[in-house]
Design a protein around this nucleic acid. Structure first.
Lengths: 208, 208
DNA sequence: GGCATTACGCTACGACTCGTAGCGAAAGCT
DNA sequence: AGCTTTCGCTACGAGTCGTAGCGTAATGCC
């Protein structure tokens, strides 16, 4: 996850792959029990059954470690065809909400995003391992809706990219804000109302 | 800001109001220079010219202090009548974006939100001093749009509250996500595209 | 098999931050 | 005046940080 280029076949003892998974799992467990601020790398090392120095050899600090630990939670994101654009949107919203309902994601994700405002490398790491995957769902959903005839095909590629970014920020931002700032449940009812607003707009949504 | 009820007139030396403002200003300055994680209360006290013990007598910890320091940034939020619902939305989006463009808000706001996922009292403090003020703008904007005839009047109060919450999460969430996660500028062009999407929905927005 | 190379566990370390306690002095009220 | 609360200062134990050094374990190459 962090040393992919020179990993081919070097002399010497290879790094234990089991240690990686143990450390990441221990990080998530510590996030659940302690939260971000009280999480210490020494504690994570003890939980994982490795030496603290081993942890520092693989990750440069708390930020990078938590990003990788949280990123694994997003592996479950996928976009099955639910038959309509509305159903696809509701589905992905509820999937995202299910991840954000887990305490290790709640406390970890926002913290690393906060740190990334002062660390470009960290933000890039978050983008690669988390954000880019979510954005792929938006692109796939739109392409599928266009093939269904629910959305008109794009003509200008630049315009298409802009609207995709916009939709992504709206969807992901709304779910995160609802779940973490408003601290209200992102349930099926909310997902339905949100989808209705996203598809029809304010006027259409109000006249229901 | 933190002891309003028993502040009336007690015997003894009153707390220095100047110290409060100096501490909050020093906190913001430290956020700009150091960011959330490297900000220490000892450093803030030194910057503010007060003793560290004074700081601990007024705030229980880093979280509460930063919430109060960041909350003052939101004093500038207002909602002048720009003539149309679309213009009002664009205006409030750009105002919010202007706050989020400041580094003390970027690093501080997300961090306390992250901490609030494990601290109900902190979340309540954030809600009172920051979130509630933003939500008021949404309510005012809708009322104004209704008086203009741009939106139909609400019939069911519960439904009205739900949609207001939804719109608030969408607007605030989208702006925050764009600014902090995507790390792209929230400029007039983006605000216009977002407003168009919010008012007309996906289909209408695509057929422009 | 022997050798070079790298990873690992362990211990120890200085530097730093935390939050609190105790003190004398300052500043208000009645 | 006398009382009360705040303030600045110093000092403190506890905890974390990130690193260095050492001996040992595991692998590839000759």
């Amino acid at each position: 996850m962090q040393s992919r280029s020179p990993a081919a076949s070097r002399p010497g003892r290879p790094r234990s792959a089991a240690a990686d998974t143990a450390i990441l799992a221990a990080t998530r467990a510590a996030l659940v029990e302690l939260g971000w601020s009280k999480l210490t790398l020494g504690d994570v090392a003890t939980r994982a059954g490795v030496a603290k120095t081993t942890l520092y050899r693989r990750w440069s600090g708390k930020n990078e470690l938590v990003v990788d630990a949280v990123a694994e939670l997003f592996d479950e994101l996928e976009l099955p065809d639910r038959g309509s654009l509305a159903a696809d949107i509701e589905g992905v919203v509820l999937q995202f909400a299910a991840i954000l309902a887990r305490p290790e994601a709640r406390s970890g994700l926002m913290a690393v995003v906060a740190e990334s405002t002062r660390d470009d490398a960290l933000r890039e790491r978050i983008r690669e391992s988390i954000v880019e995957r979510q954005k792929g769902l938006v692109l796939a959903g739109r392409a599928r809706a266009q093939s269904r005839g629910e959305l008109p095909p794009e003509t200008d590629p630049a315009e298409a990219a802009r609207t995709a970014d916009l939709i992504f920020d709206v969807v992901a931002g709304a779910v995160v804000h609802r779940a973490l700032v408003s601290a209200e449940p992102v349930d099926a009812e909310w997902a339905q109302g949100f989808t209705q607003l996203l598809l029809g707009g304010l006027a259409a949504s109000a006249s229901t």
